[in-house]
Nucleic acid binder design. Structure first.
Lengths: 155, 155
DNA sequence: TATTGTTATACTCTATAACTATA
DNA sequence: TATAGTTATAGAGTATAACAATA
C-alpha cells in the first residue's frame, strides 16, 4: 500500500470526484471575473447556440430542475446577457435569447475556459485527450442504463 | 451543431460533471443498503487501511474539512464500524480504528462498489480503462498546479 | 385536465470562525 | 502560543410540492 488512499484509487468514482473538484473550483475562478459560474456559463452558451429555446427544454438539456433554472436566468438577465420573451404561439412559455452584450461576454468567457481546458489537458496527447472525452461519455451512458434497473445491484 | 450542448461537450469540465453526477447517484444507491454514502464509505476504507490514523490526517488524505469529518465519524461510530480513542501520546488527538463489524461491512461494500465500477467501465478495454484513470489523475495534478497561480489566468 | 414558469422550502455538501482541552 | 477536535453557522447545489396563468 503505497499511498493512504490506494484502495480507493482503483474506483472511477474516486478519481473522478477528485479530478472534478479541482476542475470545478478552477473553472469557477476563471469565470468569476466575468460574473459567471460554471452553471450560468453553461446556460449562456446553450441559449446562444439554440435561439428561442424554452426554459423546460433548457432544463432538460442541462439536466437542471426547472425551479433552479429560474434563479440562474434571473442572474443572466440582471447581467443583460439574456432576455425572456413571451412565446407568441404559447403565452405560458418564455423564449430565451442572448443579447449582443451576452454574445460578447460568451465569446470572451469561452476563450478563457478554452485556455484553461488546454492547461488542464497539458501532458496529454491529442489522442489521450480525445480518449478521455470518449471514456467519460461512455461512463455517462453506462450510468444512465444502470439508472433504469436501480438498486437491483445487490443488497 | 448536432446536439444542443455541442459547444460544451468540448470541455473536460462538462463531460466530467455529467459523468460524475451519474456515478455519484449510482454509487450512493449501491451503498445505501449498507447504510453508507460515498464519503462515509471512503472514510471507512481509509481508516481500515491506515490504523491509528488521526482525524486531521484523515481529513488531509480525503481533502475534507475537519468540521465536516466530525459528523461523518459520528455516523460511522453509530454504525459500530469505527472507534475513536484518545491517543496515549497526545491527549488532544483521537486514534481512529476500524472494528471487526466495520471490517465486515467494509469488505461487503467494497465488493459491491467493485461490481458497480466494472459495470460503469463496460465497453471500455482494460487499456482504455487504465488510460482513463491515468488521465483523471493527470487532470487532478494539473489543476493543483493551477491552484498555485490562482486567478492569474486572464481577466 | 395538463403544462409553463414560478414560489417556497428542504436537504446535502462544503467552507469558515470560534470554542475547549490539551500541548 | 499553537494544535486537535468540536460547535455553530452560512453558502452553494440540488430536489420536491404547490401555485397562477394558460393551453
Amino acid at each position: 500500500m503505497t499511498t493512504p488512499d490506494a484502495t480507493l484509487r482503483r474506483f472511477l468514482g474516486y478519481d473522478m470526484k477528485r479530478a472534478f473538484a479541482v476542475i470545478q473550483s478552477d473553472v469557477n475562478a476563471v469565470l468569476a471575473p466575468f460574473g459567471l459560474r460554471m452553471v450560468t456559463f453553461s446556460v449562456l452558451v446553450v441559449i446562444r447556440d439554440n435561439p428561442r429555446l424554452r426554459q423546460t427544454q433548457l432544463a432538460e438539456i442541462l439536466s437542471l430542475e426547472k425551479p433552479n433554472l429560474v434563479l440562474i436566468l434571473d442572474q443572466l438577465e440582471r447581467l443583460k446577457t439574456v432576455v425572456r420573451a413571451r412565446a407568441p404561439d404559447d403565452r405560458r412559455a418564455h423564449e430565451l435569447n442572448i443579447t449582443l452584450q451576452g454574445r460578447r461576454l460568451c465569446d470572451r468567457a469561452l476563450e478563457a475556459v478554452d485556455a484553461h481546458d488546454a492547461r488542464m489537458a497539458e501532458g496529454l496527447s491529442l489522442e489521450e485527450r480525445q480518449a478521455l472525452h470518449t471514456a467519460l461519455r461512455h461512463v455517462e451512458t453506462n450510468g444512465r442504463v444502470v439508472d433504469d434497473r436501480r438498486a437491483v445491484s445487490r443488497s
